[in-house]
């Protein structure tokens, strides 16, 4: 059973192995600096006639790809924890409707990959489940349609705006390590459940500034709860703060006595080359953290280039209705400590 530390953190008593990962990305992501690490590249609509069906296809294909890699029967999967950015988690529902696996839909905006892995690992550490899959997706076109303007509307982006990543990433979590006996596999060591933060930034084109305090809050809580310093980790990997949010995060962290500048990186900064790809402040969307973690970071962990990673995916809890009704823009961040 997981043991609670401090207010927000839980140390897992058993080892929850990240046995395998899979990810499928769009063309722009493939052209980015991490292009070579992704499993597969597909068109943004994945050959479907609507963006929403295209995103659902990404989830379905990523799920099937992962199942193919682990050569397990779907009957052996206790639950799939899935989330996306669309209304009522539409892409997850459509994408997994034929999976025949118990399904829990989650919404944590861009924090969903950490949220799904966090929920899965706590369910597994309670001995209720042994094998689960955590999966998320986002799609540039369907996200633009839902949150912003029609795709073909001509306009300019502000320097703080972020580009929604078209990708889906999945992890297979198990209480039992797969593969050869001597082969090491990364495992989830502890988790920190974030609190909603509201620092009254009301610019929908500056999600980095909306999210940075939530991210700092979760990292600080994680370190304090588990009596750790930032140098415990080889990498503190935040999800989707982009260039603007990352700068702010470092500033808030040093204000609170923790300098993380030497070991911090952000998925939103890593996935695109902002200068040549004109993605302004960087990538965003729950497919961003999922794609970067399941490809590049997972590989670094498996090759022992990284031994301890704090994965902190952060999301803005907003809906277009909230924005129109003048509500404050809220943010949440969840942390997962992964070791090998």
């Amino acid at each position: 059973m997981a043991v609670k530390f401090g207010k927000q953190s839980y140390k897992l008593s058993g080892r929850i192995y990240i046995n395998e990962t899979a990810c499928i990305v769009g063309p722009r992501e493939k052209e980015g600096p991490l292009g070579e690490y992704f499993d597969q590249v597909e068109r943004e609509d994945y050959g479907e006639d609507t963006w929403e069906k295209g995103e659902a296809h990404y989830i379905e294909a990523t799920f099937n790809k992962l199942m193919g890699k682990i050569s397990l029967d779907t009957k052996q999967i206790d639950c799939v924890f899935s989330g996306d950015l669309l209304n009522q988690c539409m892409a997850s529902a459509i994408g997994l409707k034929n999976s025949n696996v118990p399904f829990l839909g989650l919404y944590g905006a861009c924090s969903t990959m950490a949220e799904s892995m966090l929920c899965a690992s706590l369910c597994m550490d309670s001995n209720a489940m042994t094998d689960t899959i955590a999966i998320t997706s986002s799609n540039f076109c369907s996200a633009e349609k839902q949150y912003r303007f029609p795709l073909e509307l001509g306009g300019q982006r502000t320097p703080t705006s972020q580009w929604t990543v078209t990708a889906s990433g999945a992890v297979y979590l198990s209480c039992n390590k797969s593969g050869a006996v001597e082969e090491l596999k990364p495992y989830i060591e502890s988790v920190t459940i974030g609190k909603i933060e509201n620092y009254k930034i009301n610019d929908v084109n500056n999600m980095g500034a909306v999210m940075a305090p939530a991210c700092a809050s979760t990292i600080l809580s994680h370190l304090r709860d588990l009596s750790r310093t930032p140098d415990y980790y080889d990498l503190i990997l935040t999800g989707d703060l982009g260039y603007t949010g990352s700068k702010i995060l470092l500033e808030i962290m040093s204000m609170h006595g923790n300098d993380i500048s030497t070991r911090h990186n952000d998925c939103g900064k890593m996935i695109f080359d902002s200068a040549s790809q004109d993605t302004k402040s960087g990538g965003s969307g729950c497919g961003c953290a999922a794609a970067v973690f399941t490809s590049y970071i997972y590989k670094l962990l498996k090759n022992l280039n990284l031994r301890r990673v704090l994965f902190v995916a952060t999301g803005a809890l907003i809906s277009p209705v909230m924005v129109k009704q003048g509500e404050d823009l809220l943010a949440i961040s969840h942390g997962i400590s992964i070791e090998i």
Binding site: Q156, T158, P159, T160, K195, E197, N198, Y199, K200, I201, D203, N206, G208, A209, A212, P213, A216, S217, T218, L220, S221, R224, T244, K247, I248, E251, I252, M255, H256, S281
Partner: peptide, 25 residues
């Protein structure tokens, strides 16, 4: 705001956010 960020007030944060957010040319 939560007790995790006891050294950061909303007012202060607006300034930090402004100074780090690039402006359109």
């Amino acid at each position: 705001m939560s007790d995790n960020l006891d050294k950061l007030t909303v007012k202060q944060y607006q300034k930090i956010s402004d100074s780090n957010s690039g402006k359109s040319n």
